[in-house]
Computed example of a mutant assay.
Amino acid sequence: MFALDTISFPNLGIVIENLPKSISVFGRFDIAFYGIIIGLGIAMGYIVASFQAARTGQDKEVYLDFAMYAVVVSIIGARIYYVVFSWDDYKDDFIQVFNLRAGGLAIYGGVIGGIITAIVYTKIKKMKFTLLADTACVGLLTGQIIGRWGNFFNREAFGDYTNNLFAMRLSTYDVNQNAITKKMLEMAEEGNYVGFIQVHPTFLYESVWNLLLLICILLYTKHKKFDGELFLMYMGGYGLGRAFIEGLRTDQLTLGDTGIAVSQVLAFALFVTSLGLIIYKRVTLKKK
């Protein structure tokens, strides 16, 4: 039996003990690992976007200027999106809406915020939106790859019971009780690890999927047929992976009491729309 603050991957023989959700600074206040990981993701995202700008002959300073606006708006958008679809958790304690240290950022809200910022920024700077989007999307994708590990430290964004190779085991006291299913508890009793749940590490699946997508986009950059194609590849590729991975999760943001997962529907719509636009644009270019 493992103690609290322990995460294990039993089928891989990995046990990580004494892993807290935050660190104490001089004993005066705590900083959540979730926030540290998000900050690291933002920094690395800018570095990768700058690399992409340099290899495509663009001014890197433009992306530093854009990032300063996009980061702020994206975080606000990610929080608003999460709060809107989790309103029952905040309606009786509104001040918690501003408590980002407890987690609660939805990537789609961040993407929407980033796109709005890009549209406004390129209009003011008289730049081509599709070119900026092609470059910025690799930075955004890098941020997502790293940012998902914030869910690992927070013990959230996991799927239902599994015993596959990457199955992850968590203490029931460390997770959101609403995300625990009957099947998890039944299998824990059957497997003699009561007090723990064994789940799909969906944060890991998504992080790996995004890494593969990033590699594909970077390799394809020199071969793109039109400005905006890389951005559409990102939206469609991410949507395809998220549509399947979201279906495994037990803490989905849903449309009221319908049980319909908002992110899963949006992900599938992004995949279909992006694929359709790529095909349309390529056919149009071929005709010309």
Rank of each mutant, 00 (worst) to 15 (best):
V194C: 07
S86A: 11
M184R: 15
K126G: 13
I80N: 00
W149R: 00
F98G: 00
L140K: 04
G150T: 00
G139H: 05
L100E: 03
V73C: 04
L140P: 02
F152R: 00
W87N: 06
L165S: 09
E190D: 12
A179C: 12
V97G: 06
V73S: 02
L64Q: 10
F129Y: 11
R169D: 00
T135F: 07
L140D: 07
F196H: 07
V72G: 11
I116Q: 03
G150P: 00
I76W: 13
D134I: 02
G104T: 07
N163G: 12
D65S: 13
I116N: 05
D174F: 08
I76S: 12
S207C: 00
Y161I: 05
G191K: 13
N178T: 14
M68F: 15
N192K: 14
V72P: 08
I75R: 04
Q177K: 09
Y161V: 05
Y161S: 09
L170S: 02
V83F: 07
F196T: 02
V111R: 06
F158T: 05
E156N: 03
V120I: 14
A70Q: 08
I75Q: 11
L185K: 11
D174T: 10
E156Y: 04
I112T: 07
A136K: 09
V208Y: 05
R79A: 06
I95R: 13
A167K: 01
